[in-house]
Computed example of a mutant assay.
Amino acid sequence: MIDRPDPFDHSPAQGSLFGSGEDRMQAPPPRAVTVDPAQVRVRLVSLLETARAADRMPWSDRDARMWRTVFPQMANWLPDDEANQLRFEFAKEFDRLLNAA
């Protein structure tokens, strides 16, 4: 960008969001994320129990796609052995429900 005055004598003609200088936007400071594994565990076990108790898919198509993606990611907050077991059990139940439809 060329820093030249505009016809109304404003300098520069357009402020830069990414240029150098004091008018540059600053990135927000990183936020610390604190996750309670106990809360994650309760949520995942609740979802697994919902799947186990169902004869057919208990969630809408949209929600089922979301849980199929999010459940394994949420399990990342738990110890590896527990996370892997919950992922396995959820995938097994999910496949059972897909075949029941």
Rank of each mutant, 00 (worst) to 15 (best):
D3S: 11
D3P: 11
R4Y: 12
R4D: 15
R4P: 00
R4M: 08
D6C: 07
P7F: 12
F8Q: 15
H10L: 08
A13Q: 03
Q14H: 05
G15R: 13
G15E: 14
G15Y: 14
S16N: 11
S16V: 00
G19Q: 14
G21C: 05
G21N: 11
R24V: 02
R24P: 01
Q26Y: 07
A27R: 06
A27E: 11
P28C: 03
P28V: 02
P28F: 05
P30C: 01
P30N: 03
P30R: 09
P30W: 04
V33I: 14
V33D: 04
V33G: 01
P37I: 06
V40R: 11
R41Q: 09
V42G: 00
R43L: 10
R43T: 13
R43K: 11
R43F: 14
S46I: 08
S46N: 15
L47S: 01
L47G: 03
L47M: 14
L48Q: 03
E49P: 02
E49V: 04
T50A: 14
A53I: 02
A53Y: 10
R56N: 02
W59N: 01
S60I: 05
S60Q: 10
D61G: 02
D61E: 08
R62N: 09
D63I: 12
A64N: 04
R65H: 07
R65G: 04
R68Q: 12
T69D: 05
T69R: 09
T69H: 04
M74G: 10
N76F: 07
W77I: 00
W77Y: 13
L78A: 09
L78G: 04
P79E: 01
P79G: 03
D81F: 14
D81R: 15
N84M: 11
Q85A: 15
L86S: 00
F88M: 10
F90V: 05
F90E: 13
A91G: 03
K92S: 05
E93P: 14
E93F: 06
F94T: 00
F94R: 01
F94V: 01
D95G: 09
R96H: 12
R96D: 09
L97N: 10
L98H: 02
N99W: 08
A101M: 15
A101Y: 02
